[in-house]
């Protein structure tokens, strides 16, 4: 492998944020919660995230998780815990919501 530029090998939060937002817009857009479509959406968001991350062409392994929850006043909390190289690896979580649901997407990137 040719030597990489230092910036190329870094997990850049802003870049990932754009990736996640674009993926949510593409897969869900302005639709409201629909029980039959949720599986399709979670798959769609994750899939399109992975595709965009692959295009970035960086030396990372990625894990994308998508949570969709219907809004009805129920509380929810999410936590992550990782055992990795703090300097090289990173994660970014985006919370997106509309009138009827919450969508929370997390991308973990582990340098290889």
């Amino acid at each position: 492998m040719p030597p990489k530029e230092n910036e190329d090998a870094m997990f850049i939060l802003d870049e990932i944020k754009t990736v996640i937002k674009d993926s949510i817009d593409e897969a869900i857009g302005s639709q409201q919660f629909n029980h039959d479509k949720v599986t399709h959406w979670t798959n769609g968001v994750s899939e399109s995230c992975i595709k965009r991350l692959a295009v970035l062409n960086k030396p990372f392994k990625y894990v994308v998780t998508t949570v969709i929850m219907q809004k009805n006043g129920a509380g929810m909390i999410m936590a992550t815990s990782c055992f990795w190289d703090k300097a090289a690896d990173g994660s970014n979580t985006i919370r997106w919501e509309n009138k009827t649901m919450y969508v929370i997407v997390t991308v973990f990137g582990a340098a290889i």
Binding site: I50, M69, T106
Partner: peptide
Amino acid sequence: YKIVVQSVIGESKNQGFQFASKSLWD
């Protein structure tokens, strides 16, 4: 091995909920 753990807990009020993941790895 690098380890990633994510946990979610919430109130059950018969709402719809789905957790899914996809990965780019070996």
